[in-house]
């Protein structure tokens, strides 16, 4: 789906939104300073009483100026501009904000960004295959496992976490592992089938 680009795609942590702005102009936003580079902006941010968090997002090391009260969800969406992760409830109840932290599914709305320092954070952008869908996403498309699609990134990340722990889950195990992700459209049946399909795709190495 879509043409391949010659710059690494979403796996790098860059979002499509700022991709155009970064290529050619060579400018990176204050949120995306590479390791070891201190800009004047960053120094000023520190003296303002803000923190600078070292976050590893989708394999890319970032230094992001934040406040301690910022959740991981807010930082991912507003600072790192990876808007695939959604806010469904903001209360740690619906699972739409699920990301992987060191491979483990967690609610990013209930995680302080500063608490995620040092961990490997994976968002839905990070399970793409360049510009192609990853296997779990592919399975969701094949099994028609979403209607409005709003809960879907969270569902996908919960599945990714599940299949890392249990590559061949039974339906009962799937239901248990996905119980932290609500779908108001009611696509559950299709979601469970998509998990089985994703397990097949991963096993086949496809």
């Amino acid at each position: 789906m879509g043409k391949k680009t010659d710059k690494p795609g979403s796996k790098s942590g860059l979002s499509r939104r700022n991709f155009i702005g970064t290529v050619g102009a060579g400018a990176l936003g204050a949120a995306m300073v590479g390791p070891g580079t201190a800009t004047a902006k960053e120094t000023q941010a520190q003296t303002d009483g803000h923190l600078v968090a070292s976050l590893n997002v989708n394999g890319r090391r970032l230094r992001v100026p934040i406040e301690a009260r910022h959740t991981l969800l807010e930082v991912l969406r507003d600072k790192v501009e990876l808007t695939g992760t959604k806010e469904g409830c903001g209360r740690g109840e619906c699972g739409a904000c699920t990301v992987l932290v060191d491979g483990v599914p967690k609610y990013s709305c209930m995680t302080l960004a500063i608490e995620a320092e040092g961990a490997d954070i994976t968002t839905v952008e990070g399970v793409m295959n360049g510009e192609e869908l990853g296997q779990v996403q592919e399975a969701f498309v094949e099994e028609d496992a979403f209607q409005c699609g709003y809960c879907t990134p969270g569902q996908v990340m919960a599945v990714e976490g599940l299949l890392m722990q249990n590559p061949n889950p039974s339906i009962a195990e799937i239901q248990e592992s996905m119980s932290g992700n609500l779908c108001r459209c009611g696509a559950y049946d299709h979601i469970f089938k998509a998990v089985r399909r994703a397990a097949e795709l991963k096993a086949a190495g496809g």
Partner: peptide, 9 residues
């Protein structure tokens, strides 16, 4: 208790 994500954290 809770949900898988909350049990993880």
């Amino acid at each position: 208790a809770a949900s898988p994500q909350l049990r993880n954290q």
